[in-house]
């Protein structure tokens, strides 16, 4: 039996007005769900496009790009040991210790890591940075080298930021894949990054992808939050995202 409100599907990508047979979901919808789940499972096991990101970042943004890696040796260990994904491998940490002084003490450091969907950052990190970086530079903020981290969690940005002695670190990371969004990217901002911080110290911009939060909207929010965080000297739950007020409520 079809639902009479099928036309509501134009307003959301949520699985509404699926119809029913008895109280159950019709077969075509059930199999569509299974296929989406298969895509999400595959995204979890996708790999960070290190070569592609490295070459484009260095040519387009004219920033040094370095590759780091966490303590998680492989995907299965990564999934069961988030603690290892939060910490840099000692050999990677040694690379950071050897950084030239010119790379230190910048305002903002970007870290790109696979998280739970490398596909997400492979596709969305560069478009977002292409919008955000020129604006940040125009505002006079200094940028640290970009770091790619394989098998990383959000908190891996803390040791990277601490080594760089940057004022704020932004981690671009693949979020856990949803059925409708195997490629959703998150951006986490942490002021005064240092190992041991928790989520209460971070601001998150979630669901960055064309069908979710657009690159333009995400860049607006990112630039706004970075300005506020750097001006107020805080990040986390006490830094409210009032950028919505300026964009959304004027509609």
């Amino acid at each position: 039996m079809e639902d009479a409100w099928k036309y509501l599907q134009q307003f959301t990508t949520a699985r509404i007005a699926l119809g029913r047979t008895g109280t159950s979901i019709p077969l075509s919808e059930m199999l569509a769900f299974r296929m989406a789940h298969a895509h999400a499972r595959d995204a979890v096991y996708s790999l960070l496009d290190v070569d592609g990101l490295q070459s484009v970042c260095s040519t387009v943004f004219r920033l040094p790009v370095r590759l780091l890696w966490s303590q998680a040796a492989h995907r299965d260990e990564y999934l069961q040991r988030p603690d290892k994904g939060r910490q840099l491998h000692p050999e990677a940490a040694a690379l950071l210790e050897a950084l030239p002084a010119a790379d230190l003490h910048k305002d903002i450091a970007f870290v790109i890591t696979d998280g739970l969907s490398a596909t997400a950052v492979n596709v969305h990190a560069l478009p977002l940075l292409s919008l955000a970086i020129p604006r940040l530079q125009a505002l006079g903020f200094s940028l640290a080298p970009i770091h790619l981290v394989t098998q990383g969690r959000v908190a891996v940005g803390d040791p990277v930021g601490a080594f760089l002695q940057t004022r704020i670190v932004v981690v671009l990371i693949g979020e856990r894949p949803g059925l409708s969004s195997p490629d959703s990217m998150g951006a986490y901002l942490t002021f005064a990054p240092a190992p041991g911080l928790t989520d209460v110290s971070r601001n998150c911009i979630s669901n960055i992808r064309p069908a979710g939060l657009s690159y333009a909207a995400a860049a607006d929010r990112l630039v706004y939050l970075l300005q506020q965080a750097l001006r107020q000297g805080i990040s986390g739950v006490h830094l409210k995202d009032d950028s919505i007020q300026e964009t959304r409520l004027l509609e």
Binding site: T13, A14, R15, L18, I25, F33, A36, H37, E175, G178
Partner: peptide
């Protein structure tokens, strides 16, 4: 109760209205 068991914002599967 999540449409089709698929939460498109939180990216996880819960129970559906069905």
């Amino acid at each position: 109760g999540v449409p089709g068991a698929d939460d498109i914002m939180l990216n996880y599967q819960s129970t559906s209205f069905h």
